[in-house]
């Protein structure tokens, strides 16, 4: 199969074949991240721009490092120190970046659909690094890569996603990716944090976490966004931790070789206990390493070939 997307906006519109092609392409890039000299000349002369309208450490750093390891010029634009504070529109910012010769623009934005708008506006490839509560495709791809690497395959596994599903773009992308790859997905969280449209996706939703993680092969623990508590969606962090936190006692319900994942940053002692986060079953740091390989693969697929831009 050939890969000919200009943009990576979400997993919803992607086929299983495309997802597998990206995961396969990431395998040789992981080898490069383990070399003594972690540098290849593939994107020499290409320009990669990180345009982040929301705070981010790991995603932005991961993209920056991915670009630099492939010899691209990488520029980071954070909104507080740019013309955006002077009122420049997203479209004008995008056109400016195009005029500067960007080959790939990576965008994170608080509004769902912002990367789509940028993708339609400019010729450069656009990668969605998280838009509103919509999608975060590179996170889901690295999650799939990690599961495949640790479990051999994704199809047939039971994967539980626990936490704030309602506000989580990671959960949405994970659900698209996992179901396309043939996994069984169950989500769990307080009723106020479960979106009503889950049934239409064929996803089972539980308010009881033990039920959700029963015999699960993989548990993806989501970060509890502390600011949500102020909106009264759940009574207290302590109660959340008691009812939904992943601890050793609770892990006994899951499969014996369960893989515990978390997209980070983690709140130790809230959604996950430190002993679980640091245990052998935890793949949290593998996720970070694999994220680099996935992002290198995507930069290669968007900017590696093709003289048409």
């Amino acid at each position: 199969m050939s890969f000919n997307r200009k943009d990576i906006l979400g997993l919803q519109e992607m086929s299983r074949e495309e997802i597998e092609y990206i995961l396969d392409t990431a395998v040789p890039f992981k080898e490069i991240t383990l070399r003594p000299i972690k540098k290849i000349p593939t994107l020499r002369g290409k320009t990669v721009i990180n345009l982040f309208y929301e705070p981010s450490t790991r995603t932005r750093t991961s993209f920056e490092l991915a670009g630099k390891r492939m010899s691209a010029d990488v520029i980071n634009i954070s909104t507080s120190a740019s013309s955006i504070v002077k009122g420049e529109s997203l479209k004008d910012t995008a056109l400016t970046l195009q005029a500067l010769g960007a080959d790939v623009v990576i965008i994170r934005h608080g509004m769902s659909g912002a990367p789509h708008l940028v993708g339609q506006t400019i010729k450069a490839g656009v990668i969605n690094a998280g838009d509103g509560t919509h999608e975060h495709p590179t996170q889901a791809l690295l999650d799939l890569y990690t599961i495949r690497e640790k479990k051999g395959q994704v199809a047939g596994l039971k994967v539980a996603i626990v936490g704030d599903i309602l506000h989580s773009r990671v959960a949405r992308s994970d659900i698209w990716g996992l179901t396309k790859m043939g996994a069984e997905v169950v989500v769990a969280g307080p009723n106020t944090l479960l979106p009503p449209e889950l049934q239409s996706l064929g996803i089972k939703a539980c308010t009881n976490v033990e039920e959700a993680i029963k015999d699960a092969d993989v548990i993806q623990v989501l970060r509890i966004q502390q600011e949500r508590q102020e909106k009264g969606l759940f009574p207290s962090l302590r109660e959340y931790s008691r009812l939904y936190g992943i601890n050793h006692e609770r892990l006994k319900y899951a499969a014996k070789d369960v893989l515990v994942m978390h997209p980070g940053p983690i709140n130790r002692g809230v959604e996950i206990t430190p002993d679980v986060a640091d245990s052998n079953q935890s793949a949290i740091l593998d996720q970070v390493t694999n994220g680099l390989a996935i992002r290198m693969a995507l930069l290669y697929l968007l900017a590696g070939g093709g003289g048409e831009v």
């Binding site: 050939s2 890969f3 000919n4 392409t25 040789p28 890039f29 490069i32 290849i40 000349p41 593939t42 002369g45 492939m70 290669y300 697929l301 590696g304 070939g305 093709g306 003289g307 048409e308």
Partner: peptide, 16 residues
Amino acid sequence: LYRDDLTTISQQPVVH
């Protein structure tokens, strides 16, 4: 990934 003709071919070759 070290080819000198990556920018002139239209499709990215598969990386093995």
